[in-house]
């Protein structure tokens, strides 16, 4: 397979793709870097030129900056927690032989097919609406005052929406992992005197470790960039209580028309994402080694 000649040929064949991907990645990154050191405000096109780090200082010293970072971590962490725990629970349930298993499985994965803004709007209007949403109705039914989810707990509500979207993904990955566990191992544990809870803890959970790692890594990548759900539900508010880093960049660029600061914010976000990636690989990446 890997003779000298075949390796050279493989590289030659791969190079156009690699080159294309490189350009694809490098060009926007370099442009962003370039803009981040420029004075570049769409409202004042005449004021331009190199201004050093002041875009960065501007972005980092914005009052919403630290809050946005905390919100980003809360969002990512919250969604990860809900999807991993919930995913394991649902995977365990739908792994049981039940009547209508096929339908149940399709229903469980269906949220994944709904595009994020639509899902968020459905949640906002159908469930969270404090006057005629379903949750409000349910609260009234048990004689409680309706709770204004998006007003009182904006970040928690967004975590709920995003978790709903990502639960199918986690469930699917964890379910396939669960199904690859040999039943003889569980039977052996049963004969060894392990009750169901201990069988889960000592046999199933270690078996799922790798799948959980995959779920965490992949979800983190996507969750760091969550934007549409925030835009259509809370607009980052009330105040800045649900503003994340991504949303802050959007606000700089398209609400304040300050492309330079937005570019600086983008670079900060990239750096932050890389720090998170390194940290994650350190923490859970070793589960991926065979």
């Amino acid at each position: 397979m890997s003779t000298q000649a075949s390796r050279v040929a493989a590289r030659a064949m791969l190079s156009p793709t690699v080159l294309l991907l490189l350009i694809w990645m490098i060009v926007p990154l370099v442009l962003t870097l370039w803009f981040s050191f420029q004075r570049y405000n769409l409202l004042y096109p005449d004021r331009s030129g190199f201004i050093g780090l002041s875009n960065y200082l501007n972005f980092v010293s914005a009052p919403a900056f630290w809050g946005a970072i905390i919100n980003t971590f809360l969002l990512v962490g919250g969604v990860l927690l809900v999807t991993v725990v919930g995913g394991i629970g649902i995977a365990l349930l739908i792994d049981q032989p039940i009547w209508g298993q096929g339908i149940v499985r399709i229903l469980v994965i269906s949220p994944f097919f709904i595009m994020p803004p639509v899902a968020a709007l459905v949640w906002k209007n159908m469930f969270f609406n404090p006057t005629n949403g379903l949750f409000a109705e349910a609260f009234k039914l048990i004689e409680l005052r309706p709770f204004d989810f998006l007003g009182q707990a904006p970040l928690g509500s967004i975590i709920m929406i995003v978790s709903w979207e990502w639960l199918p993904f986690a469930t699917l990955i964890l379910l396939t992992a669960l199904q690859s566990l040999s039943s003889e191992q569980l039977e052996a544990a049963e004969m060894d005197g392990a009750p169901p809870v201990k069988r889960f803890w000592f046999i199933m959970l270690p078996h799922l470790a790798r799948a959980i790692t995959v779920v965490i890594l992949i979800e983190t990548i996507f969750l760091l960039g969550i934007f549409g759900e925030i835009l259509v539900t809370t607009n980052g508010g009330p105040g800045t209580s649900s503003t994340t880093l991504t949303y802050l960049v959007y606000k700089e660029a398209l609400l304040d028309f300050d492309a330079g600061t937005a570019a600086a914010g983008g670079v900060v976000a990239v750096i932050l994402a890389n720090i998170v990636a390194v940290f994650l690989m350190r923490a859970v990446g070793r589960n991926l080694d065979a």
Partner: peptide, 15 residues
């Protein structure tokens, strides 16, 4: 577990 028997499986079923 309560039967007091031990089983050795064909696939060994080690953890």
């Amino acid at each position: 577990a309560q039967r007091g028997l031990a089983m050795v499986f064909q696939s060994y079923a080690l953890y």
